[in-house]
Design a protein around this nucleic acid. Sequence first.
DNA 1: CTCTTGGTTGACGTTAACGTAAACGTTACT
DNA 2: AGTAACGTTTACGTTAACGTCAACCAAGAG
Lengths: 131, 131
Amino acid sequence: MAAEYTISDLSAEFDITTRTIRFYEEKGLLSPRREGSSRIYTPADRTKLRLILRGKRLGFTLEESRSIIDMYDPEAGNHEQMQSLLAKIREKRHQLEQQLHDIEVMMLDLRDSEERCLEAMASPDQSAKQS
Amino acid sequence: MAAEYTISDLSAEFDITTRTIRFYEEKGLLSPRREGSSRIYTPADRTKLRLILRGKRLGFTLEESRSIIDMYDPEAGNHEQMQSLLAKIREKRHQLEQQLHDIEVMMLDLRDSEERCLEAMASPDQSAKQS
DNA sequence: CTCTTGGTTGACGTTAACGTAAACGTTACT
DNA sequence: AGTAACGTTTACGTTAACGTCAACCAAGAG
């Protein structure tokens, strides 16, 4: 049952380069077992990787993702760290709300531009003047 | 009626440094008038700056923001450019949906951790064992 | 044996978006 | 005259998150 993965298994699954995975290890976010010199990853490592990538999608830095990962480690003792994490997530929510608003406005703006553009293309050449 | 702004007016209003504003000019996103050697910005420049910053919040590069700005320029002629812009915005929408999902999952995960954490703090020191 | 397909460790290169610092000019008080 | 507050240019520095070699080792196919 205890599955294991090579570095290229994971790179294929998550569509990232092996360099990226090794980089995360350099930064201390992963620490796979060694079989000879090759890296062997456990399901737990795979989960951590998934967390890192999720963090990335949300614009977290690797350092921030590290604290997310740490929540999954045996020492569930760090209460204040959790508070700061919750704070970061709430901040992301605010950002998301802002972004949603930005997108909506931008969509409206674009529809405006589109209309003006279509109008311009419809009326045959009056390029120079405007009252 | 035709208001004008100095560089520090704008830097104060949008809470960015003057360096940033000059940088945008270097990149050709702004081109304020000169009064002597000083830069003078029009409301149109101000709008462009606002568009840049909105783009930034959405994770657009400056190059992408440039195409947004170009939509506001007199030559409303570029139909295919608009299409690519619309595509980018749709892509952003997808990203946002993904991010919203990520946030929700992360929130759930955190509540889990929180519970486990509180439990651990409640039960007086049983740190070493787990059945 | 050679070749291909993975894996490894350095180590330097890259890119975007500014930061930072030096060295200088111009009003405008006081 | 001094000095503060604002403006300018030029140019090197910074950071994150990898990319891109180079040079090497190991296992299996043919």
